[in-house]
Write a protein that binds this DNA or RNA. Structure first.
Lengths: 128, 128
DNA sequence: CCTATAGTTCGCAACATACGAACTTATGAA
DNA sequence: TTCATAAGTTCGTATGTTGCGAACTATAGG
């Protein structure tokens, strides 16, 4: 097992960040980590929103986030503690992560709104 | 040749935007289009920053931008006029594109700063 | 109709991604 | 110590995506 490598802040690129967050699973992991008041292990994400994500896939996603500079991981015994580097990134690219997060949540809300009328329509069809 | 398709604003996704702009060539095309006071053809990008990008590759990049909802393309005779849809996207995801653009330009400046000392060092070495 | 020009599509090679199986490392019990 | 277990990583492979040359399509102007 090769040691964990984290890019220095100067080596973090916008393209890397955008690419890492353009994957829905990684984006979900990232925002969840950024909301968590304490560090989080990988296995905490084995089940995400009803989807069961294989361990190996998760491991790759964490590596992608780490290599993009979005998170910092450190071994703690048998498990791994992951924390976001958002303060650092905010320093280098002010406003970037908040803007992306805001957009994601707008989209998330819009999807909920979309789902509502459909469910109502289905119910109406059933009762008719 | 299948007709040009543009997603409706509701179908534009954050992941799609991030993915489209995570490619340096597409990002460059996009920002250049957004700076252009008028619409721009594809062939205007055949030579970008000393790099010569093949026509077919360019065509794919334009398609990617179009399908992500970032640009609108319309035939005008034998060529294609491309315009950004940034006003629409700003409406749906306020602040997203400006934040990304700002980050890109910060990175661009940082790279220039990085290049300077090197060139100076090289000159010093030559004169020594 | 012929030719030139701007883009698109096709086909293939190179690269990236997902995931099961096998492996490594740390922990705790016997 | 030795064994079992748990958390992650790495490997192999199947599947998907991307880049680019060659062939194609569509339009404008002789």
């Amino acid at each position: 097992m090769r040691p964990l490598t984290h890019p220095s802040l100067d080596d973090v690129t916008v393209e890397g960040i955008l690419h890492a967050l353009s994957d829905p699973v990684r984006a979900a992991i990232y925002w969840q980590l950024s909301c968590a008041d304490s560090a989080n292990t990988c296995s905490a994400f084995l089940k995400m929103e009803d989807r069961c994500i294989p361990k190996s896939t998760l491991s790759q996603h964490f590596r992608a986030l780490r290599e993009a500079g979005l998170i910092r991981s450190e071994r703690r015994g048998v498990e791994m503690l992951n924390t976001t580097r958002c303060a650092e990134i905010e320093q280098r690219f002010p406003g970037l992560l908040p803007a992306i997060k805001n957009a994601q949540s707008i989209q998330c809300e819009a999807r909920k709104q979309d789902a509502e009328p459909k469910r109502a329509a289905t119910q109406a069809a059933h009762s008719a």
